[in-house]
Structures are given as structure tokens and as C-alpha cells.
């Protein structure tokens, strides 16, 4: 741990979420006003039971879901007010990792990683899949980093779950992101693989100085890997603090 810079040393807030609300069309209220800030280089774990609004929160940050009210500031940009063009610019700086990996099943591993470059490319060139030599080289070195360089030309659905999630991480890394949004990255994996994936995410974020927001169902993982923990219950923030401050009764309150 000692060689890795602790998050507390960096003071710049990179992400500010303020009074964020989301009500779905069917009347379900997912978020009832959530506020928090994330400093650059920090790993923040978001915990809460399923249905607490964790996934909605994450998708409101990169506007895969349109928030109903409130603000998201990312690196000095008001994401909630961004137009189409600005939104592309914001999204490409936020890598996203999904619970069910969400790889393009019939594309190759390399193709999936290269998709991370789309936000930087001309629309037509990207659609036709004409990637620059530099992009391909970068993608290969990222694959090497996650130990999948030998699988680069395999179809994504031929890999095991853990391998697929590593491709998911590689895709996010290909974006050269400032922030990684990981939505339940280990919920579909067995315990051993889960630990392995969390190690990858942790190491990569710390080495590259990437800020990371992770939704986690399991408190244990959050305590081990996150610099700071935010507890969400019924669309509200009910806890914020360091892992060691997360007492048992607080956990119980979050999951009640």
C-alpha cells in the first residue's frame, strides 16, 4: 500500500453531484436528492441494497438516464446541461464497467476494446470500424495489461465471465478516462474471480490516477477496496465516511 498515493493527498474535486433527483415515467422515485463530491484519484464505494437507486445514480452521472432534477459537475462541466456534443466529450472521459459485462458478444475481444475509442473518433470512421494504428497498438497494450493479449482475436462470448469483465475494464481503459464508473462489476462473478477483478480495478485506478466510483452490493468488498464509502437507501444518502467508520449498526441501517 505504501507506494501508492493515498487519495487524501489530492484535494481537487473532479465530480460534484448535487440534489440529484430521478423519477421514472411510471412514477417510481429512484433518487430523492443525492449530494456528494469525489476528489481526483479517489476510489469511492457506493453501497446499498438492490433497488436503493445505486444504478440509477451511476447512469445519471453519464446521462444514460436523464436525471429529473439536480446537477452533476464533472471536471468543471455541467453534465446535466450539456448538449449532444459536450455529452460525447464528457462520456468519453468516463469509462463504464457493467454488472453483466455488456460486451458485444459477436465481436472480437480487440473490437470490444477498440469501441472505447469511438468517442474520440469521427462518427463515420467509427461506425465503419476504421481505427488508427495507434489506437490498435494502445488497445493491444491494454489487453496485455489485463492479461488477455492472447485472446485478442477470439469472439467475446467465448471467454469466461472473469475474462469478459477484464475486457470490460480494458474497454473502459481504452477511453483514457479520468473517471471510471463501475456498476456492480462483480455481482455476476464467483468469489475468487470477484476478488481478482477488484484487484485489477484497484491497481489500475491507483497506478493511472483514475478516479473511481464503484457500486457494490457487498459491504466487505467496499471496506477493503474503497477509500471512502457512501451508503444509499431509498434514493437518499444515509452514510458518508471512511471504511473504518462504517460501524455494524450503520450497515444495518443502510440495508434495513
Amino acid at each position: 500500500m505504501s507506494e501508492i498515493v493515498k487519495a487524501d493527498g489530492i484535494a481537487q474535486p473532479i465530480l460534484t453531484v448535487s440534489a440529484l433527483k430521478k423519477t421514472y415515467k411510471d412514477g417510481t422515485v429512484a433518487l430523492r436528492g443525492v449530494d456528494f463530491t469525489v476528489k481526483a484519484g479517489e476510489i469511492v464505494g457506493i453501497i446499498g441494497s438492490s433497488g436503493a437507486g445505486k444504478s440509477t445514480l451511476m447512469r445519471c452521472i453519464n446521462r444514460l438516464i436523464e436525471p429529473s432534477d439536480g446537477y452533476v459537475y464533472f471536471d468543471g462541466i455541467d453534465v446535466t446541461k450539456s448538449n449532444k456534443h459536450q455529452l460525447r466529450y464528457v462520456r468519453r472521459q468516463m469509462g463504464m464497467i457493467f454488472q453483466s459485462f455488456n460486451l458485444i458478444a459477436r465481436s472480437t475481444v480487440l473490437g470490444n476494446v477498440l469501441n472505447g475509442r469511438l468517442g474520440y473518433m469521427d462518427s463515420v470512421r467509427g461506425a465503419l470500424g476504421i481505427f488508427s494504428k495507434q489506437d490498435i497498438e494502445d488497445a493491444m497494450s491494454i489487453l496485455e495489461r489485463v492479461g488477455l493479449v492472447n485472446q485478442a482475436h477470439k469472439r467475446a462470448d467465448e471467454l469466461s465471465g472473469g475474462q469478459q469483465q477484464r475486457v470490460g475494464i480494458a474497454r473502459a481503459l481504452a477511453q483514457k478516462p479520468k473517471l471510471i464508473l463501475a456498476d456492480e462489476p462483480i455481482a455476476s462473478l464467483d468469489p475468487v474471480t470477484s476478488e481478482n477483478i477488484m484487484d485489477y480495478i484497484y491497481r489500475i485506478c491507483k497506478e493511472d490516477g483514475i478516479t473511481c466510483l464503484i457500486n457494490l452490493h457487498q459491504v466487505e468488498f467496499a471496506k477493503r477496496y474503497a477509500d471512502r464509502i457512501i451508503g444509499i437507501r431509498a434514493g437518499r444518502r444515509v452514510f458518508e465516511g471512511r471504511a473504518q467508520d462504517l460501524a455494524q449498526d450503520v450497515v444495518q441501517e443502510i440495508y434495513a
Partner: peptide
């Protein structure tokens, strides 16, 4: 909090 990163070299969890 401590994570031993050198502990395991990529075991594959699923077949």
C-alpha cells in the same frame, strides 16, 4: 486496508 496484489496471477474463476 491492504491488498496484496502479487498474491495471485489471474486464476480463472469460471470454466
Amino acid at each position: 486496508m491492504s491488498v496484496d496484489l502479487a498474491k495471485k496471477e489471474m486464476p480463472i474463476g469460471q470454466p
